[in-house]
Design a protein around this nucleic acid. Structure first.
Length: 842
RNA sequence: GGGCGAUUAGCUCAGUUGGUUAGAGCAUUUGCCUUACAAGCAAAGGGUCAUAGGUUCGAGUCCUAUAUCGCCCACCA
């Protein structure tokens, strides 16, 4: 017998291991239609957070649903090596042990990274298990696997051969802590306190000077020009002359360039082509020299003269002091401006001139834009407006810097010998070739994830069968990093969208709506939630409390509320199982269904229809609400209550049938409790609910019976209301007239016992009456006069409603233009209202 | 500056191609230990759907403008 309270710890114990052992997570039944999802690979850098729990639960819901519904459902697990993120963590860990990355050397460092990876991969697998995810572990992939590596090399080489990958000297975002280039997506802009420093740049041969404002005085050693707008009346006469660079005392040209905005600052801008992307462009236009003034760790180099060796910050301070003493500092204007920080190390990013590898984006992006116009081959975003996020990125995209000065990752398949460059899958033959030291951006490999995990570039069975993937599930914050890149690489290399649908969810926020972050300390560990409320409660909360694509606030009260719902389900099951203790297979019958049986069966049919529809459109919150309402309101509040005075074999059979379908429909959301209860059912089709069949609607129509009982239930609610508002106690006497076939429903639900039936004339009582088509009932209780206020209220409301409806129906435009069924429904309703009014008045 | 959203009950949110008198959970009020569940049961109150126009027989839903808030991208010498 079940405990009176749902104990999630007991319920969830051991089931995952059991499912896994029995092979229920495994795909490969070729007789079924394939359905495939690849997991967004978590980084091997830490613990899964609530966002992962949400993301993966959505996928597990889909996989479990499709598996039950007769598909060969494959869910590919995997993880991402996360180049810079992992490298930063391993470097930090080594440093704590007094070990330096460079002393350790490349091979030793990679060994340390692999050790780290194995440790964290194990943790992640344990967390997947705690979340109940039905992943096919035989297919698990890692972005540095042999096959992924082969795919990465092929893609690099092919793009290079087509001229879509090139190496060039550009201004890139440099992370001076990790000492690597970053893509624009890896730079986080934050508002920092800074200042506008106004410096004197004397005009050569005069004692006039230009007021040049800069936020970065320390870069002046790299200045190779001063620019003014060619239309700026204040300065245009100076174009062609020279300015004297302060401290350095070098003459640099004054150039006219559109980049100088006459309305911004003083309208004069110093040009540092090696340390600013805009200045780099200006430098190209005017053929200016590029002078790099910093080392890789952002300390000043020899070009910074006596400041060599100082950090950027030290140099700025010392330089400003010297400028001030020399009378070259005009003023300091405090300001807040946004400064780029490295996503992984938080270091202030230095725009830095260096030689890097780039992907030429324009042709690849254009192909995506073209493909999205084709309804049959495009990626279908859910909700659809997220397509705009991708398309906009494709429209404004710039070349992607893919080389990283790291060791942990896919080493760039390029070799150099003198001025010669060789790019190929394998090392070139011959002596003297040296491979590029750099690795690729981690997103370069994850962009291939949907097909490379299935064996591509080989035409494997899995690739042929499961590609393109059925759906990809991820958060909207990952669209620019990942979804976009998978889409253009998929089109480029497989001539296909990587997935048919792309289900986008939002971010998890805290109760106040703030992003969860380490610095705020408002993060919640999903494993703690699971310990306290259970995996099922967490999953149900995560997936049924927000509309698709919207953010979700984590609110412990709502997790509790989910737990309460599961407790309700537990107790309803307990009731059914108690009453079906000796129920045998041969007792099962659906003959002689009662009105209530037909009512719940008809409701169930509608629920199955509704749930299937919403499962297919990813509207899980609707599924949740539908099931919640059906289970709590229809099944528990009415059908179980009505069953208490029935308990025929038919009634028990229907209880079993409905409970079974409830468990099945809920199973993708709450796998554990549904399995637990399924195991206790007296009749079940499969040894596990995981492999049972998803409910389909049955071939009957009890709509009339449903409508009939609904009317009776409305009566019961109205009569209970009458009793409550008039303080009619259970001792009150009652007299009623109703049909014998439905009498028991009223008696049981209104708790009318024989001793309540009025036997005398009733003259000495206060009375309250309720009358409908089905029942005329009067309560007699202490007092002296009839209370009519309820009835009067209803009459007044009815009259208003009738008047409104008559007016509507007399409107020619409405009757002629509105759909017939809408008008008919109004007519029917009007007739009913009139009938009810007549009954109340008569 | 470019793009994308949001604004509905005290709170958190639904509201599917326009179609009765806008829903749920939590919270609130009242009454109940009724033999599955008091983490429960029964009943109830609570919203001029941000604002102003427009289209329509009919607008929370479509269009235009405004306000407020949020996110992404770019720029910030």
């Amino acid at each position: 017998m079940l405990d009176t309270k749902y104990n999630h710890l007991e319920v969830e114990k051991g089931k995952y291991e059991d499912w896994k052992e029995k092979g229920y997570f495994e795909s490969g039944d070729l007789s079924k239609k394939p359905y495939c999802i690849v997991i967004p690979p978590p980084n091997v850098t830490g613990k899964l957070h609530l966002g992962h729990a949400w993301d993966t639960t959505l996928q597990d819901i889909l996989i479990r649903y499709k598996r039950m519904d007769g598909y060969d459902a494959l869910w590919v697990p995997g993880m991402d090596h996360a180049a810079i993120a992992t490298e930063a963590k391993v470097v930090q860990k080594l440093r704590q042990n007094g070990v330096d990355k460079y002393e350790l050397g490349r091979d030793g460092f990679l060994d340390a990274c692999w050790d780290w990876t194995h440790e964290y991969a194990k943790n992640i697998r344990e967390q997947w298990a705690k979340l109940g995810l039905s992943l096919d572990y035989r297919k698990e992939a890692f972005t540095l696997d042999e096959n992924l590596t082969r795919a990465v090399k092929k893609v690099f080489v092919d793009l290079y051969n087509e001229g879509l990958i090139y190496r060039g000297e550009r201004i890139i975002n440099w992370d001076p802590v990790a000492k690597t280039a970053l893509s624009n997506e890896e730079v986080i802009y934050k508002d920092d306190e800074g200042a506008f420093y106004h410096l004197k740049y004397f005009i050569e041969g005069t004692d006039e000077y230009l007021d040049v404002a800069t936020t970065r005085p320390e870069t002046l050693f790299g200045d190779t020009a001063v620019a003014v707008n060619p239309d700026d009346e204040r300065y245009k006469h100076l174009i062609g002359k020279k300015a004297i660079l302060p401290v350095v005392n070098k003459a640099i040209p004054i150039v006219g360039d559109e980049h100088a905005d006459p309305t911004f600052g003083t309208g004069v801008v110093k040009i540092t082509p090696a340390h600013d992307p805009n200045d780099f462009e200006v430098g190209n236009r005017h053929n200016l020299e590029r002078i790099v003034v910093m080392n890789e760790d952002a300390t000043m180099n020899a070009n910074a003269l006596k400041y060599e060796g100082m950090t950027r910050e030290e140099c700025r301070e010392a330089l400003l002091k010297d400028l001030e003493e020399a009378g070259l500092l005009i003023s300091v204007e405090k300001m807040v401006h946004s400064v780029g920080h490295s996503e992984r190390t938080d270091a202030v990013v230095e725009p830095y001139l260096s030689k890097q590898w780039f992907v030429k984006m324009r042709p690849l992006a254009d192909r995506v834009l073209e493909n999205q116009k084709n309804k049959k081959t495009k990626v279908n975003f859910v909700p659809p407006h997220y397509e705009k996020t991708m398309n906009h990125w494709m429209e404004i995209t710039y070349d992607w810097c893919i080389s990283r000065q790291l060791w942990w990752g896919h080493r760039i398949p390029a070799w150099y010998k003198g001025d010669e460059v060789y790019v190929g899958v394998d090392a070139p033959s011959g002596d003297g070739w040296v491979q590029d030291n750099d690795v690729l951006d981690t997103w370069f490999s994850s962009a291939l994830w949907p097909f490379a995990t299935l064996g591509w570039p080989n035409e494997t069975d899995d690739y042929k069968r499961y590609y393109p993937n059925s759906v990809l599930v991820t958060g909207y914050d990952i669209i620019p990093f990942w979804v976009n890149r998978m889409t253009f690489q998929g089109l480029k290399f497989t001539d296909s969208r990587p997935f048919k649908d792309c289900l986008i969810h939002g971010l998890i926020r805290d109760k106040e709506g703030r992003k969860m972050s380490k610095s705020l300390g408002n993060g919640v560990d999903p494993m703690d939630v699971i310990d306290e409320y259970g995996c099922d409660a967490l999953r149900f909360f995560l997936t049924t409390n927000s509309a698709p694509g919207a953010d979700l606030r984590y609110d412990e009260e709502k997790v509790k509320s989910s737990w309460n719902f599961l407790n309700k389900l537990w107790n309803a099951s307990r009731f059914v199982l108690m009453n079906l203790e000796d129920f045998k297979e041969e007792d099962y019958t659906l003959d002689n269904l009662s009105l209530a049986d037909k009512w719940i069966l008809n409701r169930l049919n509608n629920v199955i229809k509704e749930v299937r529809k919403n499962m297919d459109t990813y509207d899980f919150h609707n599924v949740g609400n539908t099931l919640y309402a059906f289970i709590w309101n229809d099944f528990c509040d009415w059908y179980i209550e009505l069953s208490k005075s029935d308990m025929s074999k038919t009634n028990k059979s229907v209880l079993l049938l409905v409970l079974t379908d409830i468990m099945k429909m809920l199973h993708p959301f709450t796998p554990y409790i549904t399995e637990e209860i399924y195991q206790m059912l007296p009749i079940k089709e499969q040894p596990s609910i995981m492999i049972s069949s998803y409910p389909s609607i049955r071939d009957f129509d009890y709509q009339k019976e449903e409508d009939k009982l609904n009317k009776i239930l409305e009566d019961i609610i109205a009569i209970r209301n009458l009793k409550a508002t008039n303080n009619i106690t259970k001792q009150a006497k009652v007299k009623y007239v109703t049909d014998a076939s439905i009498e028991n429903i009223y008696r049981s639900q209104l708790k009318i016992k024989d001793e309540n039936i009025l036997t005398d004339s009733g003259d000495n009582y206060l009375t309250s009456n309720y009358k409908s088509k089905n029942i005329d009932i009067t309560y007699y209780y202490e007092g002296t006069k009839e209370d009519d206020s309820k009835k009067d209220d209803e009459i007044k409301k009815l009259e208003e409603s009738i008047a409104r409806r008559e007016k509507l129906l007399s409107n020619e435009n409405y009757v002629s233009k509105a759909p017939a069924q809408i008008v008919d429904a109004d007519r029917k309703k009007l007739a009913e209202e009139k009938e009810r009014l007549a009954l109340l008045k008569g």
